[in-house]
Write a protein that binds this DNA or RNA. Structure first.
Lengths: 139, 139
DNA sequence: CCTACAAGTTCCAGCCACTAGAGGATCAAG
DNA sequence: CTTGATCCTCTAGTGGCTGGAACTTGTAGG
């Protein structure tokens, strides 16, 4: 059994984050010592690792909640899990496309700064006038 | 002079957002009618457009504040503006790299779902075990 | 046994950039 | 005068934590 500090060190999460996950019901409340300190078993550590990994992949807590529910009922079809992953993948792809559009425009804007005074600054000018900016505002 | 509704329609911002920007000091408080309704002039609309565009490019309000301050003192060097843009570009590039890494891993994970039961679900398994996941956790 | 000090506890506020909703006032048209 | 659109202020909520205050426990050394 580990303390919250050890759990944090093992999973790479912060103690406050672990407590937050408990509060949010993402992990079950761990055992406590007589004095009230949390004690985590191997299963708890595993689940924390799961959450950590899923968060690192950008899943939202709501999705993670669903994935956890799925893994707790191992007889169920995993189509749902795949669905969640697929949906997330779509989101990521959208964001990627958006971001590269941003990058393109921003590169253009940033490149034409010649170091003059702000009155002639292309950066500020380009930001003021979005006539030549396409399809960014659908963000 | 335009009402806040017109300003919103012209800039693509919501009324609440415009009021929020006012509260945050990103725009100066507009004139008011006798009854207290906001009236926006051309300059105000322009500035709102500026903010809108910068936000669409992903600049944070703090950066936008600096950019506005710069454009208000047109005699100053625009190196600062360029610096802000460059910094933002770096952030975007980092996020892009991160996102494509996520996409790669997630694609791998999602692909191996064969539609079986959750106990054998590769998606859940892959999330539990991040032994084969590289360098995502530096996010 | 006493003293530090590290590590844990709860609770509450703050972050960002809005957004939603309540509840009321005002405006323009018919 | 009524109706419905528009506007006003104020408060609270979003997600996913993070930080701090104020307190209690555990442990190691002297």
């Amino acid at each position: 059994m580990r303390s919250i500090g050890q759990a944090a060190a093992l999973t790479g999460l912060k103690q406050t984050t672990i407590r937050y996950y408990e509060e949010e019901g993402l992990i079950r409340p761990p055992q406590r010592t007589e004095s009230g300190r949390r004690r985590y078993g191997e299963e708890d550590i595993k689940r924390l690792g799961f959450i950590r990994h899923a968060r690192a992949l950008g899943f939202e807590l709501a999705d993670i909640r669903s994935l956890i529910a799925l893994s707790d009922r191992p007889d169920q079809s995993c189509i749902e899990a795949n669905h969640i992953a697929q949906r997330h993948l779509d989101t990521i792809e959208q964001r990627l496309a958006q971001l590269s559009a941003l990058k393109r425009e921003l590169t253009l804007i940033a490149r034409c700064c010649c170091g003059g005074v702000a009155a002639e600054c292309r950066v500020i000018e380009a930001l003021s006038d979005h006539g030549d900016c396409q399809a960014i505002h659908g963000a």
